[in-house]
Design a protein around this nucleic acid. Structure first.
Length: 676
RNA sequence: GCGCCCGUAGCUCAGUUGGAUAGAGCAACGGAUUUCUAAUCCGUAGGCCGCAGGUUCGAGUCCUGCCGGGCGUACCA
């Protein structure tokens, strides 16, 4: 089944081209704004009239005479300055609904594309050094929805979770683990906890801060010396063995502890900046175990360069630590993905930065060879055309740091080569927040100049920030990121409370199922229903409201239909048989016609949402559907209807439930429930 | 400084290559319930689409300037 709007667009455009001799004469068929203008309006006549210097109304008459759309619409009407208004025939609606009913493939009569493409969707991308927080929510769920829509339309979608497992933050966590081991030598409470609060407290007091940093540095140096055996390594006595135990049996609360340790390392490095404190560390290189003093604030970055030289046996401690962090972090991510009903297929789809590690030297070498990258202030930079800084000089894209480490620009470039070359991508969609727009523009430009993107379409799908009730970035009172897990648990908890109030007689299992569907659904739906590109204010109260464009309202509409179906059984109405034998409809009530028309437009809605990667087009459609259903439900009895009307109404119910269920569950990844 | 995004009803937001009288929801007010789940429906009220110019038969939408807000702008992602 082809959506009516597409058929009309094609037929009318053809006639317009024919009459005017202009091959590019789009009809621009759109939904009418006002029911008195019919169901669809043709907007393209005036533009064509201008182009060909014709009178718009006369042109419209000529077009109306020639178009043959009588199988779909009533006689077209010309109105205003040159609009053509179209009204769908009830026969067409009936035929379409019966066609949808006859489709047993869960595709609701919607065709797959005749031009399937290979589309890589890069989304979620959490950093494995940190817990998933509210900042990861949008990329994760919007990306998932885009994948679901494109898959439904018949494209070959390749999900890619470009997790951050190769950058600077890993160095910080590895250093954090080192502190974890050292702290156990110094007794309770662990020094990193007390010092973390001290560092925060002294932030404004230069002298005390300096004294504190000196103390921290001195202990650090002593611990390092104690751990070190010149010929064997700098983590020989304690840290190395500690890691080996951890890899085999990580304690349950380790992940929580890592968050604190990360903060601790981060804060030390910002605090000691410019103080001139140095500590001992191992040199990078092929000769075993040489040592030097490094500025304290650069230590974690130095550790990152060791990690990025992972196959060097000297760097076993970094490798072990990295494997450990990766393992427990992925367990944490998968727990969140499970809550959100999002699935990644192992190494095939969870392909982090480290996946490209062997390709990074080649990326840099190739760009140098092509004359696209050069050294500048010690770093290797590419300078894509068309980007200027404040002095009007060329803006650099750093692909290798002074210390030799690679960055996200490098892995992004390697990923483009892989996705175009190996995955055969026609399109690569990047779902990340709008702040990274410049980064991706530059990466895309470099990839193009290097010839790596070939004919692939590189698309940055941006989104706005999640804000708190105060309109500022959504954080805890102490300014920390809000953990996604806690946020989702809170949503489920609030939903649970409502279910308990509204429907106390349900079984505990049912209540839990509903609380999960409603709570998680509310968070996801609220995100989807806002314009992707703008910021939005996170409010449990609004997203869990039972009125308005919310998940609970949608789920309730669905549950009501299911309730009719249950009721039917007790009244000896056999819905299956009645729907199976249906071959003509009786659409008479205005709410029936309105609902019927909307049901026929589902395909249009999905196409529109997928074309612009905008889930809110889909939620708008679904919300209108639920509203139209509710109006129908109030006006038209279903089970008590007479024999002539009941099958039609049962069909409207069935198709509405299928459409809402499909939209929510298959495309938005939100669960529906039979009872609420 | 430069670049990108945003400014629409009291609040939160839609608004489809420029189309007819700018739409929802919340809140407010008025009505509907011996129900197929009222977690609902129907109605009323509410607007200089930031301001000022321009292009156009037609501008919330495109262009220019200004005001206000957010973000980015070399070794984080």
């Amino acid at each position: 089944m082809i959506p009516a709007i597409d058929i009309l667009e094609e037929r009318i455009s053809d006639v317009m081209a024919d009459i005017s001799g202009e091959p590019d004469s789009p009809a621009i068929v759109r939904l009418s704004k006002d029911p008195k203008f019919g169901d669809y309006q043709v907007n393209g006549v005036m533009a064509l009239a201008k182009k060909t210097k014709a009178k718009p109304r006369e042109l419209a008459e000529k077009i109306v005479e020639k178009i043959d759309i009588s199988d779909i619409c009533e006689a077209p009407e010309i109105a205003g300055p040159g609009f053509i208004n179209l009204r769908l025939k009830p026969d067409y609606l009936a035929k379409t609904l019966l066609e949808i009913n006859a489709d047993k493939t869960n595709h609701l009569g919607i065709n797959k594309t005749n031009k399937p493409k290979t589309i890589v969707v890069d989304f979620s991308g959490p950093n494995i050094a940190k817990q998933m927080h509210v900042g990861h929510l949008r990329s994760t769920i919007i990306g998932d929805c885009i994948c679901r829509m494109l898959e439904f339309l018949g494209h070959d979608v390749k999900r890619q979770n470009h997790i951050g497992d190769w950058g600077t933050s890993l160095g910080k966590v590895i250093l954090g683990l080192w502190h974890l081991r050292m702290a156990s030598k110094h007794g309770e409470p662990p020094y990193y906890k007390t010092e973390l609060s001290e560092l925060q407290a002294y932030a404004g007091d230069k002298d005390r801060l300096k004294e504190l940093c000196q103390r921290i540095r001195d202990r650090h140096e002593k611990d390092w010396q104690d751990d070190f055996v010149a010929a064997k390594g700098d983590a020989y006595k304690f840290f190395g063995p500690f890691l080996e135990t951890l890899v085999h049996a990580p304690p349950l609360d380790l992940w929580e502890e890592i968050t604190t340790l990360y903060q601790y390392v981060n804060l030390i490095e910002t605090s000691v900046a410019g103080m001139g404190l140095t500590v001992s560390t191992r040199k990078k290189g092929d000769n075993a175990f040489q040592y030097f003093q490094i500025e304290y604030e650069f230590l974690s970055r130095h550790i990152t360069t060791m990690l990025q030289d992972i196959d060097n046996p000297d760097n076993k401690q970094e490798k072990d630590a990295w494997n450990l962090i990766k393992k427990i972090s992925l367990e944490h991510c998968n727990e969140i993905y499970k809550m959100l009903d999002i699935f990644f297929d192992g190494d095939k789809e969870i392909r982090g930065e480290s996946f490209y590690r062997d390709m990074l030297p080649e990326v840099v070498a190739q760009l140098k060879k092509k004359g696209l990258a050069e050294e500048s202030d010690g770093a290797i930079c590419a300078h894509p055309d068309g980007f200027k800084n404040k002095e009007g000089e060329r803006l650099p894209l750093i692909i290798q740091k002074t210390d030799g480490a690679y960055l996200y620009a490098t892995t992004d470039l390697a990923a483009i080569r892989y996705r175009v070359g190996k995955l055969k991508a026609d399109t690569i969609v990047y779902v990340t927040d709008a702040r990274q727009a410049l980064h991706f523009e530059m990466v895309f430009a470099v990839a193009k100049m290097a010839g790596w993107s070939k004919d692939a379409d590189l698309k940055h799908v941006t989104f706005g920030s999640v804000l708190g009730e105060d309109g500022k970035p959504f954080k805890t009172r102490s300014g920390e990121n809000i953990k996604l897990k806690e946020l989702l648990e809170e949503a489920v908890g609030k939903a649970r409370k409502v279910v308990n109030e509204k429907n106390p007689e349900l079984s505990d299992d049912k209540k839990e199922e509903i609380a999960n569907a409603v709570g998680i659904g509310a968070v996801k739906y609220a995100d989807y229903s806002n314009n992707r590109t703008s910021d939005y204010i996170f409010s449990f109260e609004k997203m869990l409201a039972m009125d308005g464009n919310t998940a609970p309202y949608m789920q309730y509409a669905y549950a009501r239909i299911k309730s009719i179906e249950r009721k039917a059984q007790s009244k000896d109405v056999d819905i299956k048989t009645e729907l199976a034998g249906i071959n003509e409809l009786n659409l008479t009530d205005p709410t029936e016609l309105d609902l019927a028309k909307h049901l026929c437009r589902y395909g249009e809605a999905i196409e529109g949402a997928a074309a612009d990667y905008k889930p809110n087009f889909l939620t708008s459609y679904l919300y209108e559907l639920a509203q139209k259903f509710s109006a129908f439900y109030t006006n038209c009895p279903v089970l008590k209807a007479d024999k002539a009307q009941r099958p039609t109404r049962l069909l409207l119910c069935d198709l509405t439930a299928k459409t809402i269920g499909h939209g929510l569950h298959e495309l938005l990844g939100i669960n529906v429930v039979e009872q609420m």
